[in-house]
Write a protein that binds this DNA or RNA. Sequence first.
DNA 1: AGTATGTTGCAAATTAACTTGCATTGAGGT
DNA 2: ACCTCAATGCAAGTTAATTTGCAACATACT
Lengths: 279, 279
Amino acid sequence: MTSVVDRFREVAEQLTPAEHQLIKQILASPRDVALGTASDLAQSIGVHEATASRLAKKLGYPNYAGFRAAIQEDFIVRTDPAARVRNTLRQGTEAGPLSDLIQQEVEALARLDQYVDDQSLLTAAQTLVAARRVFIFARGNAQALAVLMERRLRRMGRAVTQLGGDGRDIAEQGLGLGSGDALLGFAFRRQPTHYAPLFEHARKAGATTLVISGTVGPSLRPAADHLLFAPRAGGQDAFQTLTVPMAICNALVLAMAKIDPRVSLENLEKLGQLIEAFE
Amino acid sequence: MTSVVDRFREVAEQLTPAEHQLIKQILASPRDVALGTASDLAQSIGVHEATASRLAKKLGYPNYAGFRAAIQEDFIVRTDPAARVRNTLRQGTEAGPLSDLIQQEVEALARLDQYVDDQSLLTAAQTLVAARRVFIFARGNAQALAVLMERRLRRMGRAVTQLGGDGRDIAEQGLGLGSGDALLGFAFRRQPTHYAPLFEHARKAGATTLVISGTVGPSLRPAADHLLFAPRAGGQDAFQTLTVPMAICNALVLAMAKIDPRVSLENLEKLGQLIEAFE
DNA sequence: AGTATGTTGCAAATTAACTTGCATTGAGGT
DNA sequence: ACCTCAATGCAAGTTAATTTGCAACATACT
């Protein structure tokens, strides 16, 4: 039984722009889509309902109703009524901003396993473990994650290069990419400038590419060899945090530590403490 | 806005046997009813679909669609994080590394509000809002958070300086600290080298100090003027993530946006998107 | 420029879902 | 036993949702 998200991934290559938008919208507010009609979905992003209907078929469902049923199955949680009532009552106690934030983060984290599974994580980790050198590409807020990953990878004995600066800088630094290297990219709200040429180059140079991203993930062109994506906490136009993608990063590091014979998790942390004590 | 259950109660007296059965069924499996059609519901207990349609009217809804929408609103939880995690973990035979990680993070986040409250957050935010310049001090993995905060504060129009490099560098950069400035520090496993002299200097220079930290927080010497701390996910000697402190950072930024008249949250994000589109 | 290919909106056709008038049934009252 | 009336099913009618052929448009490739 293939999950909806899996199907998105499978056909991501063959999707049209309008279909990408649709999927993005579904990922962004699955509940509303699961409860609404094809027209609702189409209208919410301003395409024709026919396009929604066609997307359902393209994804392998017999019709839109079947597609919606699958979305419901995957995204609408089954809860026993008793637990639900308890939950609702608990929320009622005048939350406060911090609790709201925490709640959002927790919700987003809880949904993470809808989008990323252990297998794809493992595959991605293998890529990084096998890589001779790792190049990291991140813009905007994602740079915080780039810094994090750079440190962690360094500590595991990887040669790491951050690709930064303007287009020319990135181009120059990216020239080093070759077969046996890996390119790790981050992308959130939209496809970053310089993404396309950089990943194009990586592909031609024979480097493996890996992207960690938010809902844009599936619409990135060219697609990376490995994609790990999940929607972030907070609404589309609201304050969005890096909690979810950071969890992906952490999981990735854990997976690497597990399969890389050179480092055990304990050593990793001991070494980390040692380094921090001296630096 | 009356809830569905309330309406059941109100009209309970005037209901026919078939209608009673229907309501019983709705209460027994609200999810299925909320996602299904009038016929589905009717068939599930062996009455005619027309009866379901009539029940909706009797309960005061304009039609069955309106009735179902109300059921969805009341019973399909917008978000059900805790249950979701529990579910995932329960059903999985040997949950898998990703779920383990997620669960740890969620638990740690859930505990966060035992350590940090809205009031101290607000006070800390005021400090940063009022500061002329903000200096950031972070070592090790915390640098990822420093990068994050630097970007966010910059975007809010603050003058920000990262204190990096070796002892001498930090000393030189820290000399700029004066009255009206704020020093934001991060500390996790232990008190960082250079922490003591730097914060000592800040105090003498009349700068306000703020520390975001893990469990070491309370044992830092000298103590900062404001301390926000909470234990991180994972055991003491295990792999520890930055999720919890990052949540504190995010909450802090949110609090700042709320009290700083110069920035609204929306503007902040809009601006952010704009910047990212151009950079 | 011209052509082939693919994408999307439009609108008509189809299908599913829901509503309602009418007929049947059965319970309670005369 | 007969009548009345509410409850329910039936089926035709109505409305909403979905599908699909077609044309317009865009794009990439001669």
